[in-house]
Computed example of a mutant assay.
Amino acid sequence: MSNRAYNFNAGPAALPLEVLQQAQEQFVEFNGAGMSIMEMSHRSAAYEQVHNEAQSLLRELFGIPDNYHVLFLQGGASMQFAMLPMNLLAPSRAAAYAISGNWANKAVKEARLIGETIVAASSEGDGYRRTPAITDIVIPDDAAYVHVTSNETIEGTQYQAFPDTGNVPLAADMSSDILSRPVDVSKFGVIYAGAQKNLGPSGVTLVVIRNDLAAASPKSLPSMLRYETHVKNNSLYNTPPSFAIYMVNLMLKWIRSNGGVGELAKVNQAKTALIYDTIDNSGGFYTGFALPESRSRMNVTFRIRNEELEKLFIKESEQQGFIGLKGHRDVGGLRASVYNAVPMASCQALAQFMIDFQRRNG
């Protein structure tokens, strides 16, 4: 399709054209069922096959050990900001949060409503232009869990490695870089992620949780807020976002057909290198927001020397089919979100546009 936009939206974000086309082919009638998957019961064999297959593909592609559950929930990562401490933060303990930017701050704000929290480390002093150093994360021995935000979409920073938290469970919001690179899942107690950046459309949230942590859900919580409820019902306690899960299934098959997570990580690095190199070789016309050691491979944040040029950049880029390059209102500037489904050709086109824009306005 020649009229496809160069989609750099931060989320909901780009999906592979072939995935969209396959969904289009099956939209009215799914596998001879005489109806769309959106119309059929979530208790039907046809839907449960899609549901279970998506869980199996996640285990395969993300290397999820057998002693972890894979859940499909709703409410986005924002729901998990509260659901995590509700389930894991005991009254006599504290949760330790590493503060790396906007989303980490939102997570700890919700946790404070539930129980005691401490700041284990923070990069606020550097304007959140980096992630907290692993060596700076201080973990109390009796902490209920340690929480990190693996990638900050607004500031454009990303952990390049994760802390070893010993016997204290490590929880991570991976909404914006899930399945974009290999991760040792066994180092984590809980991983959660909204699907709408790397896994599919909005509406479904992935939670990967170690068995013992799920089993410890307090019985005093409402059923829908207990991880144990969803484990026992295979994420089918209530009506799931069935079409979104179907799309996740297609997206996972696309990841597998493109070489898996390891191969995608190489492509993602090459895609963002094109843009970072353009920034670094611009002689100061463009400046990156994130410090080089913390640069995200998902969200490239940068500035131009004055806001008038930034406004002109947005205007001209939109005229040429580039979508989503305006930075978040809390930070300003410019941002290119380069998730799994953003093709190399889009990044090449953006790099060339940036070079041309500088030539005309430098």
Rank of each mutant, 00 (worst) to 15 (best):
G125K: 14
I245H: 00
V208H: 04
V28N: 11
V146K: 02
A290C: 03
F357Q: 03
R329Y: 15
N52G: 06
D184W: 09
P65I: 00
S44Q: 10
E18R: 15
I191V: 11
A14P: 13
A161P: 01
G63Y: 03
L312E: 08
S56W: 10
T165F: 02
S337D: 10
Q22R: 15
P292Y: 13
V342R: 00
V50Y: 00
P201N: 11
M298Y: 07
L71R: 09
E228W: 15
M251P: 07
D142T: 03
A193I: 05
E29W: 06
L199V: 04
M40N: 01
F357S: 07
N31I: 01
R303W: 14
R335D: 00
A98H: 04
Q348R: 14
Y145E: 08
V28C: 09
S257P: 05
E155P: 08
Q80N: 11
A265K: 12
D184R: 14
Q160D: 08
R4Y: 11
N340W: 01
M1S: 15
D142G: 01
A96Q: 03
A345V: 11
G200F: 01
I37L: 08
G125S: 12
D164P: 01
L89C: 11
S242E: 11
R360I: 06
P240K: 06
I178Q: 02
I209C: 01
A23T: 06
R112L: 09
L206E: 00
G321I: 09
F27I: 02
